[in-house]
Every structure is written in C-alpha cells, then in structure tokens.
C-alpha cells in the first residue's frame, strides 16, 4: 500500500516528508517503543500516540520510513525537524489507534 493511500484512508495530515509513492508492506501500532524494537521485523509504517523524539530515533533504528501519529496528537517542531533530517515521513490522524489500524487492515495492509 502506498503512503498516499494511507493518508487518504486515515484522512491524515502530512507533517513532513514527501515519500507519497513509497510502498509500505506492513504496519505496527504501539505506544511502547520497547515493543517496536522487540517485535517489528519489517520496515514499514509505525502508528503511535507517543510524540517524543525517541519515536523518531526508534524508527530510524528499525528503518521505518513513515510514522503516523494517532488520536490527533502532533509532535513539536524539534521532533518534526529530526524526522525530516532522517528522511522519515510523519503524518497525523485524528482517529484513535484501534480504528486507524482497523481501517488500514481492512484495506489490505497487514501486520508485522
């Protein structure tokens, strides 16, 4: 599934990046970065409600190319700048974790 499609399914706002055509093979949803580091096997999309810089650093370590913030949360400018520097795309949706994941799963984006 392309990032473009994810943005439209979640009615998401783009915070930084322009990798709209990047193909995302799988997604993982968690507010615990420890779990992201433990369970993510494939590069893809991370959905999270956590907004601190460690979300971007975790994504960087895991080669995750796109982060979607859920529940209407948005990180501050320094986090957006860090992601831009790392070439990680950031998007934000008002949907809660459960429905955001459900929407993507229903459209064919599988879990890790």
């Amino acid at each position: 599934m392309k990032v473009n499609e994810i943005i439209s399914l979640l009615d998401a706002e783009v915070l930084c990046g322009d990798a709209f055509e990047t193909e995302i093979g799988s997604a993982f949803g968690s507010d615990m970065m420890s779990d992201v580091l433990a369970y993510v096997n494939e590069q893809g999309l991370l959905l999270t409600g956590l907004c601190n810089p460690q979300v971007v650093r975790t994504a960087e370590m895991m080669d995750i190319s796109c982060i979607c913030f859920v529940r209407g949360k948005k990180p501050d400018e320094s986090v957006v700048a860090l992601a831009a520097e790392k070439n990680i795309m950031l998007i934000a949706t008002k949907r809660c974790m459960y429905s955001a994941c459900g929407e993507l799963y229903k459209a064919g984006l599988e879990g890790n």
Partner: peptide, 23 residues
Amino acid sequence: EGYSTATEEIRELGFGAGMGLPN
C-alpha cells in the same frame, strides 16, 4: 521478557516494557 523495574515516568516515555535486555 516483560520484567521491568522502570517507573511510570519512564513508561510514559515509551520505554520500560521489560524487553530491553532480552531484545
């Protein structure tokens, strides 16, 4: 896995799930 001595404060930062050392 899952054992952690991390405080609630640390968990709010997204860590302390007890996966660090096993990972």
